[in-house]
């Protein structure tokens, strides 16, 4: 554990809680891509199956349970409780275009051709692109609520902090996981355009809206 890893995890947690609270307080999931949330629930489910096979630490177990629980709670709020506010027409990204290639890649490029390892690899690859339906939705509607942009900022910041964590671990522990690193770089790059808009617009008190 190092400071980048810890702040990365807390940033991830902040993002998840911000989204849940936004939906709960406003009683609405307008502007939120249910498809991205389904992908994140799938990511956590396939990655954290090791909860059943190996114990790493209390911190690790508790955080995994919180992430999984919140992911399913979010999906429940969007597709069940506040279904009437869900903007399905603008959430038109085709999930199979992500899940199928990612599944194929996980079978081809992995550390070990075993069931759990392939699911872990699948989750790493899928997480790197899981935000695309949300970004696609924002590009379609041309705007995002400010609270939604805070969610995206913390979600992007988390993987960027993990990049520093991996640099740290490489130098001080000699540890590196090429699959996680490459996917993490891809994931962070996908947020760069958004980070720019966040800093230049949202942090200056303006709403995030894209030029028509």
């Amino acid at each position: 554990m190092n400071i980048f890893r810890l702040t990365g995890d807390l940033s991830h947690l902040a993002a998840i809680i911000i989204l849940l609270l936004k939906i709960w307080k406003t009683r609405s999931c307008a502007g939120i891509s249910g498809k991205s949330q389904i992908l994140f629930a799938l990511v956590f489910t396939t990655r954290y199956l090791d909860l059943l096979t190996s114990f790493i630490s209390f911190y690790n177990t508790i955080m995994k349970l919180i992430y999984i629980g919140c992911a399913y709670a979010t999906v429940y709020l969007i597709y069940m409780k506040f279904k009437a506010t869900y903007d399905g027409n603008h959430d038109s990204f085709r999930l199979e275009f992500l899940v199928v290639p990612v599944g194929g890649l996980a079978c081809l490029v992995n550390h070990d051709f075993s069931f759990l390892e392939i699911l872990w690899t699948f989750s790493i690859y899928l997480e790197s692109v899981a935000i695309l339906p949300q970004l696609f939705m924002i590009s379609k509607t041309g705007e995002a609520e400010t609270i939604t942009t805070h969610y995206l900022f913390f979600l992007g910041l988390y993987r960027a902090l993990y990049l520093f964590n991996w640099i740290w671990r490489f130098y001080f522990e000699g540890f590196f996981d090429m699959i996680a690193i490459v996917a993490g770089v891809v994931q962070t790059i996908l947020y760069c355009d958004f980070f720019y808009l966040y800093v230049t617009k949202v942090l200056k008190g303006k709403k995030l809206s894209l030029p028509a």
Binding site: R5, D9, H12, R47, D50, T53, S54, I56, S57, N60, M63, K64, Y67, H111, D112, S114, L116, E117, W120, Y162, N165, D177, A180
Partner: peptide, 10 residues
Amino acid sequence: KADETSHDEL
């Protein structure tokens, strides 16, 4: 070959 328990990150 990776040790499966080495996935200690979240």
